[in-house]
Amino acid sequence: MNIFRLAGDMTHLASVLVLLLKIHTIKSCAGVSLKTQELYAIVFATRYLDILTSFVSIYNTLMKLIFLGSSFSIVWYMKYHKTVRRTYDRDQDTFRHWFLMLPCLLLALLIHEKFTFFEVLWTFSLYLEAVAILPQLVLLQRTRNIDNLTGQYIFLLGGYRGFYILNWIYRYFTEPHYVHWITWIAGLVQTLLYADFFYYYFLSWKNNKKLQLPA
């Protein structure tokens, strides 16, 4: 464990807790893409299949349980909670996210480190996580503005992957044989997807005005 990875995990934890807290407190999920939340639930479900078979550390298992629990809770709130579900604008959140999953699955079947059931699904979860934010970013473009909690959610989510890139660089230089190209490229693509959002987020913060994403 290094400081970059710990910072990344804490930022990631903060992003899901900020979102869960927002939805639980104000009983609204306006501006949040259910499609992205569903994709994240699938990412965690396929990423942590080994939670029962391989034990790395208490921390590792605890965090996996938190991520699984929070992502499925967010989906549950948005789909089934009597008050929250009414605030979900389904006619704006129309990204065909199943079309994201198929290419990720095909790519995982083609490019992976080992051709085993767990490894292919694990690789699928990496590719899917890289693109899972797209429905949310499309929704933001459509709704034109962003309330600060959703903005914080995306900002933290982007930051977590940015910290992970620093972690991979650190581990590459400090641990022999630590080479995972698939993870690194998927993580880099994911962070680049956030780059333009970060740019507009920073502009809005600098000019102290409401964040307006260009159409």
Partner: peptide, 10 residues
């Protein structure tokens, strides 16, 4: 198993 393989990241 060889350490490099263990999935120790979230």
């Amino acid at each position: 198993p060889d350490k490099s393989y263990e999935k120790d990241e979230l």
